[in-house]
């Protein structure tokens, strides 16, 4: 077992060399599937390559070309960008306002409201699919991107509210009291003081809302019946369906789809982890 803060042995001690070897092997194992996907994406064939070598023998960008220039992928990409973007904006706005209320005001039913946000995280999604389908149908939003945006932003709200509320709590009230003294209104305080000060938390909330929308495929598959309304996950799932297996195209698509989230994730992961553990809620 290693203990921090004890620097009596040097960076080149046997223990450390052992650790480096261990982690090199483990990392190689962990990223092997990722390399495998890159290999499939860069290989000219659509099937599997029957060798364990994770590097492609004659790399080509043909698969990326096929996928990106394909009939529906561009459309699906656009749909996903629109849905995820709108979900992020709407979700962040809704979460910020209610988190502010929960953090700064004391009012009847406050605890109930917070608990209700928490409890919704335990509802199995399947329980809500049929009613959601009927409600979206009733609202005339079936097969429309707006329907997905509304559903995604509300499913992202509870986590975002808890995480933002935790962050708002750490901002000293004195700031607001001073602003109130100077004649600022509540909404000025909210827009000019709270939001700028909580930008890191807002960024995480945005990332979370974005990822919720970007990665969801069941509701998208149920709500959308026209091919031109498919989002990326539905599109990707179709590529390796029961009757087709364009693994090369799938791999290229998977990389295109994963890249933005992976980049965003690494940019914001420290805050994300902080938020996850601070809120103590499911994401």
């Amino acid at each position: 077992m290693s203990t921090p803060g004890l620097a009596e042995d040097s960076p080149t001690s046997w223990g450390r060399i052992g650790k480096i070897i261990f982690f090199t092997v483990v990392s190689a194992l962990v990223i092997y599937p990722v390399l495998w996907v890159f290999k499939m994406a860069l290989s000219p064939s659509q099937g599997f390559d029957s060798s364990l070598n994770p590097f492609p023998s004659n790399p080509t960008l043909a698969n990326f070309e096929t996928v990106l220039l394909g009939d529906f992928f561009g459309r699906a990409l656009l749909n996903s960008v629109v849905v995820s973007g709108a979900t992020t904006v709407l979700g962040v706005f809704l979460a910020c306002t209610s988190a502010y209320a929960l953090s700064r005001f004391r009012f009847p039913l406050r605890t109930t409201a917070m608990l209700s946000f928490l409890v919704t995280q335990m509802f199995p999604g399947v329980l809500m699919m049929i009613p959601l389908y009927l409600i979206i149908d009733y609202l005339g939003l079936l097969d429309q991107l707006l329907g997905l945006v509304l559903v995604y932003s509300t499913t992202a709200i509870p986590f975002c509210v808890w995480m933002l509320k935790g962050y708002f709590d750490t901002i000293p009230r004195e700031l607001e009291e001073a602003a109130l003294m100077d004649g600022a209104t509540r909404s000025m305080i909210f827009w000019r003081i709270m939001l700028p000060l909580s930008l890191p938390a807002v960024a995480v909330t945005a990332l979370f809302s974005f990822m919720t929308a970007w990665n969801e495929f069941i509701l998208a598959a149920i709500f959308m019946s026209k091919e031109e309304n498919y989002t990326l996950p539905v599109m990707l799932r179709m590529m390796v369906g029961q009757f087709s297996s364009d693994w090369g195209n799938f791999a290229a698509g998977a990389i295109v789809v994963s890249l933005p989230v992976v980049v965003l994730f690494f940019a914001l992961q420290k805050q994300l982890v902080g938020g996850l553990t601070a809120g103590g809620v499911k994401g």
Partner: peptide, 22 residues
Amino acid sequence: AYAYLAPAMIGMMVLVFVPVVF
């Protein structure tokens, strides 16, 4: 306070609580 809470609560009501009760 309720005004700040309302937008999210209305959304949750229609698309989370109602489906669950339903």
